[in-house]
Amino acid sequence: MSIQHFRVALIPFFAAFCLPVFAHPETLVKVKDAEDQLGARVGYIELDLNSGKILESFRPEERFPMMSTFKVLLCGAVLSRVDAGQEQLGRRIHYSQNDLVEYSPVTEKHLTDGMTVRELCSAAITMSDNTAANLLLTTIGGPKELTAFLHNMGDHVTRLDRWEPELNEAIPNDERDTTMPAAMATTLRKLLTGELLTLASRQQLIDWMEADKVAGPLLRSALPAGWFIADKSGASERGSRGIIAALGPDGKPSRIVVIYTTGSQATMDERNRQIAEIGASLIKHW
């Protein structure tokens, strides 16, 4: 067993022997300050990975656009099909120029040879490739089937209704393509630590998230040396920005953090900075 597999395998073990964890309200002060700075709603939740206990939250049951954070859930659904023998990570999918949508930095380079399901999930999570996400959605039956998968997991909140890039419209009070911080955190925890996926698939999912290449300005920018993070960011219209992450010190994840914001007129750089500052406060008061 590799060191990485050993780390994931021990998560349920540590759950039975973990020391108590305590929240620090200073982080919530920073979350509220971020709302003021951005002139927008901010949703935040911090969940103990082992016990599932909510350590701190702000607007945990308000809806926010999922943006590209849905791609982790999508690849979780794909992996569940792999575990059930209904899909193969090595299966090659061919597509055409007509399938390409905006922001497809990986898939646009493989029009001649296609990409495997594994490569598409990697592109969707690590590079947030939109065409990769659409091709993967097709393999499971579309957005409604992803919503059904989540319902079967016990998540009756999170929903995907449209494809890339339309799902990023982020219209106020529109429940399409939205989640709540509490629902997303719970669902992510189930995918990473529960029995829904095999150990190999849980490890694959967290490996893809750990290799995320487009979330550098967010929580990763505040991460001390030696800390672990596996994450997925998202951005969409109407000043929306978000990130879902499993992180912790000593090279292993111990908490789930979900941050969403929407309705801001601030620049992308400012939205990134506010999320990074929330992360810095979280780490300082860990």
Score class of each variant (00 low, 15 high):
residue 213 K to Y: 07
residue 24 H to A: 07
residue 56 E to V: 04
residue 208 W to I: 01
residue 181 P to R: 00
residue 15 A to K: 05
residue 149 F to V: 09
residue 107 T to S: 13
residue 276 A to G: 06
residue 171 I to M: 14
residue 40 A to E: 10
residue 49 L to Q: 02
residue 269 D to N: 11
residue 271 R to P: 07
residue 76 G to S: 10
residue 48 D to A: 05
residue 240 S to H: 15
residue 12 P to S: 14
residue 157 V to R: 10
residue 193 T to I: 15
residue 10 L to K: 02
residue 162 R to G: 06
residue 98 N to D: 13
residue 250 D to R: 09
residue 32 K to T: 06
residue 83 D to E: 08
residue 276 A to T: 07
residue 15 A to Q: 11
residue 190 K to V: 15
residue 212 D to Y: 00
residue 215 A to D: 02
residue 229 I to L: 04
residue 219 L to M: 03
residue 178 T to F: 01
residue 55 L to S: 03
residue 5 H to Y: 13
residue 152 N to G: 13
residue 98 N to M: 14
residue 250 D to Y: 11
residue 173 N to D: 14
residue 61 E to K: 14
residue 213 K to G: 06
residue 38 L to E: 04
residue 51 S to N: 08
residue 225 A to T: 12
residue 238 R to Q: 13
residue 80 S to I: 08
residue 246 A to R: 00
residue 254 S to N: 09
residue 213 K to C: 12
residue 27 T to A: 02
residue 79 L to F: 01
residue 26 E to G: 10
residue 91 R to L: 03
residue 238 R to T: 14
residue 7 R to C: 08
residue 179 T to E: 00
residue 110 H to S: 09
residue 204 Q to K: 11
residue 66 M to I: 13
residue 242 G to V: 06
residue 267 T to N: 12
residue 223 L to D: 00
residue 65 P to Q: 04
residue 196 L to H: 15
residue 180 M to W: 10
residue 63 R to V: 03
residue 21 V to T: 14
residue 204 Q to C: 14
residue 222 A to D: 10
residue 110 H to A: 06
residue 87 E to G: 02
residue 153 M to H: 11
residue 6 F to S: 11
residue 179 T to M: 00
residue 166 E to M: 11
residue 268 M to G: 04
residue 252 K to A: 13
residue 166 E to C: 12
residue 210 E to R: 11
residue 231 D to L: 02
residue 252 K to L: 09
residue 264 S to A: 08
residue 240 S to C: 11
residue 183 A to Y: 11
residue 277 E to R: 07
residue 35 E to D: 07
residue 182 A to G: 13
residue 148 A to S: 15
residue 241 R to H: 04
residue 77 A to R: 08
residue 268 M to N: 06
residue 253 P to L: 06
residue 99 D to R: 06
residue 119 E to D: 08
residue 262 T to I: 07
residue 151 H to R: 14
residue 20 P to A: 05
residue 188 L to C: 05
residue 71 K to R: 00
residue 244 I to P: 00
residue 189 R to Q: 12
residue 15 A to L: 11
residue 75 C to G: 07
residue 114 G to S: 02
residue 48 D to I: 04
residue 150 L to F: 11
residue 201 S to N: 09
residue 200 A to V: 11
residue 81 R to G: 05
residue 234 G to E: 12
residue 211 A to D: 13
residue 182 A to E: 10
residue 153 M to C: 13
